[in-house]
Simulated assay, not measured.
Amino acid sequence: MRDFTVVPIKGHHVIKRGVSSHVIALVSQYLGLSRGALADLMGLDRGTATRLSSEGKNLPPHAADSLLRLLEIHDMAADVFDTPAGTATWLRTPHPLLENERPLDAAKTSYGAQAVKNVLMSAKYGGAV
């Protein structure tokens, strides 16, 4: 079992220090998303993400926050579902408890991410999903 209670505290410190734009390639691979799709989920257009990465600059705080939020959601889903394929499918499938929005899209905002976390916790502990 993973401990997600430390994510907000550690995430805050990581964002304050700065997150290199070079992680976009690594995280897109980890999440199984194209770089453009990841940039969109982070609130960046593809050109800006490419420019930041080629210049070796840090992500803007809002994009770094979104990136960490996506990683947290992904890892929570991986803790609930048995396989990487099951995790990926769940994250990319519209869900009725998220107003038929895909969990990845809902997680673009902090409120949407909280709704996704609530659904995942219900699924993990036997609630209605």
Rank of each mutant, 00 (worst) to 15 (best):
A25D: 06
S21Y: 04
A37K: 15
G36D: 12
S20M: 08
S53R: 11
G43N: 10
T48M: 13
L31S: 03
T48H: 11
M42R: 00
V27K: 04
Q29K: 15
G18C: 08
G47Q: 14
L52K: 06
A49L: 11
A25N: 07
I24C: 03
V14N: 00
D45R: 14
V19R: 00
G47H: 13
S53C: 08
H22A: 06
V19C: 06
R51E: 07
L41M: 10
S20T: 12
Q29F: 11
S54M: 13
S54D: 03
L38C: 04
L52T: 03
E55I: 04
G18S: 06
T50E: 05
A25V: 15
L38R: 01
L41V: 03
G36L: 03
V23R: 05
I15H: 14
L31V: 09
L38V: 01
A39Q: 03
S34W: 05
G47A: 14
L41A: 03
K16A: 15
I15A: 10
S54L: 13
G18K: 15
R46T: 14
G43D: 04
G36F: 00
R35A: 08
T48I: 15
I15D: 06
R51G: 10
V14E: 01
S34C: 13
L41R: 01
E55L: 07
I15M: 13
V23E: 03
S20L: 10
L44T: 03
L41W: 01
M42V: 02
S34M: 08
I24R: 02
I15E: 11
T48G: 11
S53L: 05
V19K: 02
R46M: 07
G43R: 00
A39E: 00
S53E: 09
G47K: 15
T50Q: 04
A37L: 12
L33T: 01
G47L: 11
G18H: 12
V14Q: 04
G43W: 13
G47F: 06
S53I: 04
A39L: 14
A39I: 01
S34Q: 10
R17W: 10
L38E: 02
A49E: 00
R46G: 06
I24W: 02
V27C: 07
L52I: 10
G47T: 05
G36K: 01
S34K: 07
S28P: 06
R17S: 10
L44V: 13
S54N: 06
G43K: 01
V27S: 05
V19M: 12
S21D: 02
D45Y: 13
Y30C: 02
G43M: 08
L52P: 07
S20H: 09
D40P: 04
A37I: 02
V23K: 06
S53A: 08
D45V: 15
L41E: 00
S28I: 00
T50W: 11
V27M: 09
L26D: 06
L52A: 04
L44E: 03
S20E: 09
